[in-house]
Design a protein around this nucleic acid. Structure first.
Lengths: 152, 152
DNA sequence: GAAATCCCGACAGAAACGGTCGTATACTAA
DNA sequence: TTAGTATACGACCGTTTCTGTCGGGATTTC
């Protein structure tokens, strides 16, 4: 149904939360999980993933936890989603992975691939910072316009 | 992973196929299925769905089959996807259906809802006709730009 | 050393997805 | 009227994916 997984949602929420608390050194997974009523162990795994992908830095031990690896402005929603859900493609059969073997007739793919890029572009233009200040992230409208023009 | 279901893919392929054969009165589900190597019974169900949603017209009996209910230019990819996969939302918890009951803290939703609208807008701007002539559907670039400007 | 915390693999329950089957119904043509 | 073709529709099942849990291990701080 073309929707994000809960994990991706949780991940975005968590990063947003971290972005909103820049003063603190590090926040534990449990802390964030409690703040949103998210299963703690699940969120923990997600944050570990994001750490492995270089979006977060982690500290073990007491008063340990996670912090953003970069400025919230420099982390895009796309990166988060990509890190958690893996590369996404609108089309079920993508040339990347062998799939459309039997039906080379999938001529829809090419136009839809452009849609895919457009969506990716939009997500890339949205930073965690944009989510934190939950103002409309309209700032990047111009860039996005250019992107649409290019890809569609 | 933010991808279309195979059903939606099949549906788009089928409509594209119908759009490419405007001369014929009606094409049977089996005919289309064979053309693409799609499971016939599955495609049949999909086409029935699209019929019920008003995107196709059906005729039973010999030489029966399906035809586009409207001009290929007047049917958007969005409609097809929506008819098959139901309303899609980027966010797992949408205000539409009761979901985010326990966590009213889902402040990500608002910005992402805009992304959602943007995607919907892009899909709405692509018609079956665009898929059929598998040229880049760049014709609508201007409209789409306006849309992005509006919703993002 | 104890407590807090991250790390990570395995696994189980649930839901979604893809696909099949059987049957009823409608239409066409001979 | 009858036979054949096609849609309509519900039930069902196997597979995969998703969500969430459990348990044990490693690391840091106090």
């Amino acid at each position: 149904m073309l929707k994000l997984s809960k994990k991706a949602d949780y991940g975005l929420m968590a990063l947003k939360y971290l972005a909103e608390h820049p003063e603190t050194v590090a926040l534990s997974a449990k802390e964030v999980a409690d703040a949103y009523g998210i299963p703690a162990q699940l969120l923990a795994k997600i944050l570990q993933l994001l750490t492995k992908q270089g979006l977060l830095r982690s500290h073990a031990g007491m008063n340990g936890g996670y912090e953003l690896a970069r400025d919230a402005r420099e982390i895009s929603a796309y990166e988060v989603i990509h890190a958690i859900d893996g590369p996404f493609f609108i089309t079920s059969c993508t040339k990347g992975t062998k799939s459309c073997d039997l039906t080379p007739s999938c001529t829809i793919k090419e136009p839809l691939a452009r849609v895919n890029e457009t969506i990716a572009g939009v997500l890339k233009s949205i930073s965690i910072q944009d989510l934190a200040e939950h103002e409309h992230p309209a700032a990047r409208a111009t860039e996005t316009q250019g992107l649409v023009e290019l890809t569609l």
